[in-house]
């Protein structure tokens, strides 16, 4: 009967905590944001920019969703969710007052503290802006601790641009570079058209003193990393947030493996040199 000791807290490993939806925002046709507060009162769990939670719809299922609010505001937990399957579709139908289960926070985080003193380049594709927003909030809150701060954002069409009002507000700041592009546009779009990786060439940041945070489709991240490297940003300064199938978020279900890594607990945020070779192998 030789058993390993059970560390405190493990009894809750699989058990979601009830959180009440305080507010629902309709971001895009298929994308919405939920503000969550503990149903039993008290403060929402603390997290670091880039981490995610498992959100549970009672009896339906659980999905990994990045936390997209301000880690230092102490307000509700904010999750921006794209409805792509039965669980997220069901969540789209929920209104304020409904209760979801929350487990978390899980995973690694953006190195925002380590990036202080450097130029910060944030590159997002589509809903990839959601896991990056807490890093943007951190940079805005502590603006003087950073050099140049650039946000490069690409979406498929103008209608797919997330957090549009905020983007416009950030774009109005004198000390932020915000550049937006879309893959396809109709005649009422006078902005840039093209892939987000092209924006990497601008921005006026100093590649030798830059930390870049990248989140979007994997192929977009690979091209973004290539563009950053081509501009002279060091491998050690480039961070990506990866997506893989996740059923547990605690390294137990095996689905999210990428070579030696469990994306759920070793990631989702990786330094480029940790995963560059693995990402280059097809179907790994």
């Amino acid at each position: 009967m030789s058993a390993l000791p059970l560390p405190a807290g493990d009894a809750l490993l699989w058990r979601p905590e009830p959180y009440r939806i305080e507010r629902v925002r309709r971001d895009l046709a298929d994308t919405f944001s939920l503000d969550l507060v503990p149903a039993g009162g008290g403060a929402p769990l603390a997290f670091r920019p880039g981490q995610f939670n498992m959100l549970y719809a009672f009896g339906l299922g659980e999905v990994p969703i990045s936390i997209s609010g301000d880690a230092e505001a102490g307000g509700p937990l904010v999750h921006t969710i794209r409805a792509v399957g039965p669980v997220t579709e069901a969540m789209r139908g929920l209104r304020a007052g409904a209760v979801l289960g929350v487990r978390g926070p899980f995973g690694s985080h953006w190195p925002v503290v380590e990036a202080e003193g450097m130029d910060l380049v944030i590159i997002a594709g589509g809903v990839g802006l959601a896991p990056l927003r807490p890093a943007i909030y951190y940079a805005l809150r502590h603006r003087r601790r950073f050099g140049r701060v650039c946000i490069f954002y690409g979406a498929r069409t103008p209608d797919d641009l997330l957090y549009k009002a905020e983007l416009k507000r950030w774009r109005g700041e004198f000390d932020l570079v915000v550049d937006v592009t879309v893959d396809r546009a109709s005649h009422d779009w006078a902005g840039k058209v093209g892939v987000v990786t092209r924006l990497v060439e601008g921005g006026g940041y100093d590649p030798l003193h830059t930390v870049a945070l990248v989140c979007g489709p994997e192929v977009m991240m690979r091209y973004a990393a290539r563009a950053l490297l081509a501009r002279g940003v060091a491998r050690e300064g480039i961070f990506l947030s990866l997506e893989r199938n996740m059923k547990c978020a605690v390294g137990l279900c095996g689905h999210c493996q990428l070579g030696p890594h469990f994306v759920c607990k070793d990631g989702p945020v990786f330094r480029l040199d940790q995963v560059e070779r693995l990402l280059a192998v097809d179907e790994l």
Binding site: Y56, A57, F58, G59, L60, G61, E62, K247, C248, L252, C253, G254, H255
Partner: peptide
Amino acid sequence: FCANVEDRASLDG
């Protein structure tokens, strides 16, 4: 050790 994790509800929910 790979495992699926599934949530199920009773018919009455």
